[in-house]
Amino acid sequence: MAETKQIVMPGDLLDTSQGKPRNGTYKCGENQFCSSYFGIVQVSDQFLDVVPFTGPYYPRRGDKVIGKVIEVGPSMWVVDINSPYSTLLHMNDTPWRTQSGDIKKYLGPGDYVYAKVMSLNEIKESWITLKDVGLRKLEGGHITSVPAPKVPRIIGKGGSMVNMIKDATETRIVVGQNGLIWIDGTPENVMIAIKAVKMVEMEAHTTGLTDRIQSYLKELKGE
């Protein structure tokens, strides 16, 4: 079982000799650290993290996320980013020449945007912006979602996993840090890409996943 990663439960004592405890841990005594999630232990560059199997998305500054507009105000949009708290997009943080009162013609309820978390305060109110390279309104395409903690696995090392799915299915894919994924292409290809994403989600905690997804994609395409 050397291949599988260590599964921990809330309150489990962590072996801190492997690395400095970081995310998903808390101090539970003198020089003792415990897990705060039900998840797996991950060690990378002297740090030890507990990555939960699932859970909500917590916004962090600089994250690029996919959000759904749920409400339009006179000068702001309220955007759902798949997190416990909704976020705000002010009209001045968009690339468009908006005027207070008629912002509905740029984004309406139900539209999706690819945006960046600009700021965040102590009570978890957050603001997003569309003013950066690559950020935009997402037109067409399909939306699927995975739990936010699994996003790094969907992307893979240096984007290897998502690029593989993109190339194999000839689709355009945008992955938000919050777990929402936008996929655009022909309906058949989109369905294949969604199936591949779901498989990564299911088996995120196992090793050798990239090779398995590659053969799964071939199988789906009937090669």
Binding site: G11, C28, S36, Y37, F38, P52, F53, G55, P147
Partner: peptide
Amino acid sequence: LASAGIPMRDL
């Protein structure tokens, strides 16, 4: 609660 991925000190 644990299976929902909510951070807890203990079960």
